[in-house]
Nucleic acid binder design. Sequence first.
RNA 1: CGGGGCGUGGCGCAGCCUGGUUAGCGCGCCUGCCUUGGGAGCAGGAGGUCGGAGGUUCGAAUCCUCUCGCCCCGACCA
Length: 573
Amino acid sequence: MRFSQLLIPTLKETPAEAEIISHQLMLRAGFIRKLASGIYSYLPLGLRSIRKVEQIVREEMNKAGAQELLLPMVQPSDLWQESGRWQKYGPELLRFTDRHKRESCLGPTHEEVITDLVRKNVHSYRSLPINLYQIQTKFRDEIRPRFGLMRGREFIMKDAYSFDATDIDAGLTYEKMNDAYHRIFKRCGLSFRAVEADSGTIGGSYSHEFMVLADTGEDTIVVCRECSYAANTEKARAMETPIPEPVEQLPLKKIETPGKRKVKAVCEFLDIFPENLVKTLIYVADGKPVAVLLRGDHEVQEVKLQNLLGADEIRLTDDKETFDFTGTPTGYLGPVGLHLRIVADLEVLKMANFTVGANEKNFHLQNVNRGRDFTVDETADLRMITEKDRCPQCGGELELTRGIEVGHIFKLGTTYSEALKATFLDDQGQEIPFIMGCYGIGVSRTVASSIEQNHDKDGIIFPLPIAPFQAILLNLSTRDKEITAAAESLYEELTKQGIEVLIDDRDERPGIKFKDADLIGIPFRVMVGKSLTKEGKIEIRDRKSGETISVTQQEAGDRIKQMIETAMAECRV
RNA sequence: CGGGGCGUGGCGCAGCCUGGUUAGCGCGCCUGCCUUGGGAGCAGGAGGUCGGAGGUUCGAAUCCUCUCGCCCCGACCA
């Protein structure tokens, strides 16, 4: 294709609205333009990259035995009523009423629709397993869209749904998808990790997230330096260690701690370590207060807490609410004599003779012991993992790193098939619900994360498999007949060979073409200019390494083809 | 929704505090000349009723009120 004819509105300056690098570069490189908050147009170059990712996804999904279909984006409310999510889903679900006063929504995900399709059309174990996917625009009315394509309200997603007859089969399907996802992201040239994850609101029992490693990622993930363990911090388990032998319980002591509210201040004042203090936090879970006990140096992992409480919504109380619930100002709370539901982190069970607030302003209690002085209603692993923790799998050192979630696979079990009464007859003639799984990939986000991971001061550096073009051919002097003829004939040759090449045939100075070529990140830059007329040479430059080689006009075509093949091989699986 | 910030030609910004005639600059765009290996130079030109509405005033980009949009931090998630 010709640069002169494509809509590639590159920008010299970064638009003020863009904060992170991928967003800035996609705007500058003319890949996307914003229409409204979280809603973008994909311009020709951006769309080409997206299509590349889609194609890889398609190939791997098909190879894994899944079938492509396309489901409606507009969905009737009835189905969502049936699954119970019409109430549950909240404002992210964009709802509207049509001319017949029927309520509908824009599909944020398609469990309901696919389950309905399958329950109406699949009735026997003989038809299973079945795995259906689509690549489609989704709409989620995000509270706060941001970072360009990274968190848009409208975005392109591949979503797949599997239906199996048995748990064992469902497990096999899950593994197949896990494998396909590894292949997909490897083929996209991304550096990523699959991590254990919380299954969130989609519901289900078991899940993994595929995280592209990037500092601007919105998620923190925990990775073991020694073994394969990797998890989202929402899920990362604290290593289970034995509860120490009981020690002698010292007599309870009430002590004045005037104005000492923060853990740090209390510890300094009493000359103790945070490891020997238990802090008490008051949360509201679906409107009801609950006290959470945690070792002084630990932080709550709210998703773990939410799962333990089985609540739809939890939040930390503010100072006023805390006082209303407990009669004690924040900073002096403790479990002794507290008349609230009390849950404790596992680590608290291992402590003895510790310090807590006395539920009285300016006082703390020392030598507190669970059992003797208070009881807890429930205990669980509730805290955020830190780099000081050890791997729950092998005991190795852990590393915390940032990641962008580009894929997520879930075992759904029978959550949806039961709700929607989607059943089949097994080999005994028994009617049982399908065992489901669902598998998503953020396609547009994948392109953005690739840029997040691969760029330099000059612009994007695309991995070859998802670059909008494989090569960009610069005609550095469109007014020179010899150069133009050579560039045009090489362009034809490459195009005939099936290479995706963009020829920069604009009547511009070389500097502009170099800058634009770097900015849009095409992996190979072929330059036809002065050195052709002077030395008979054409140069080929590698965008990533910056290495440039000179070849004769005759060998140029073959060399480029060979370089592309070599680079593609690196991302093959 | 809570907290912070911003809306002035396509992009980046100044002007606003302390109202005053034709609203300015850089880039981009158009024409001509010139130039062609890292975003050149010269000359000429087009393009903005200053997000919108109302108000104060002889006079509003500037002051006041309301409103809309956008961005950042938090709850959400591919």
